[in-house]
Simulated assay, not measured.
Amino acid sequence: MRALEKWFEPTVIVAMLGAIIVLVFADVIARFAFSTSIAVANELARLSFVWMIYFGVSYAIRERRHMRVTVILDMLPQGLRRWVFALSEAVFLIYSVAVCWLGIVITQQSLDRGKILSSTEWPTAVLYAAIVFSGGLSAARLVHSLWRVLARGDLRLGPQTDV
Rank of each mutant, 00 (worst) to 15 (best):
S96I: 13
V69G: 03
L23D: 02
E43C: 05
I61Q: 09
L17I: 15
R62C: 02
F34A: 12
A15E: 10
F85E: 15
L47V: 03
F34M: 14
R81N: 04
A30G: 15
S96L: 12
T11R: 02
A30Y: 13
G18P: 04
W7E: 09
L73Q: 00
A90T: 13
A15G: 14
V69N: 07
M75G: 05
E63Y: 02
E43H: 06
V97E: 14
V40F: 11
V50T: 11
V14D: 08
F34D: 10
S96V: 08
A39K: 10
S96E: 13
A41C: 13
A30S: 15
A90P: 08
A86H: 04
A86E: 07
S37Y: 05
L23A: 07
E9P: 00
T36C: 09
G56K: 00
A19N: 03
F32A: 02
K6N: 10
V84N: 10
L93Y: 08
R65S: 14
I61K: 04
L76C: 01
R68M: 04
L80N: 06
L23R: 00
R82T: 14
L17A: 15
V99N: 02
V12K: 00
L47W: 00
R81M: 03
A33C: 01
V71P: 00
T36P: 01
I94Q: 01
W83Q: 11
M52Y: 12
M52A: 13
R81L: 01
H66V: 04
P10D: 02
A15W: 13
I21H: 06
W101I: 05
V24R: 07
V14C: 10
A90F: 15
V14A: 13
F92T: 14
A15L: 15
I61E: 07
P10H: 05
M16K: 05
L93C: 08
P10W: 00
V40E: 14
V99T: 03
S58G: 07
F55L: 13
T70G: 01
A26F: 15
Y54T: 01
T11A: 05
W51F: 11
Y95I: 15
S88Q: 08
V12N: 01
I29F: 12
S88D: 06
S88A: 10
S37Q: 11
K6Y: 06
F8V: 01
I61L: 13
A19S: 05
L73I: 10
V28D: 11
R82L: 12
R68N: 05
F25H: 10
I20E: 01
L80D: 04
I53F: 08
A90Q: 08
A90C: 13
I29E: 05
L44D: 09
I53C: 01
F32L: 07
R64Y: 03
I13G: 05
F85N: 15
K6M: 08
L76K: 01
V84H: 07
L76R: 01
V69A: 06
S88T: 10
W83S: 09
M75I: 06
F85S: 15
S37V: 10
D27C: 02
F32R: 04
R46M: 11
R81Y: 07
F34L: 14
T36Y: 08
A45T: 02
Y59P: 03
G79L: 00
I29H: 05
W83R: 09
R68I: 00
L23G: 01
W51Y: 12
M16I: 03
A60V: 02
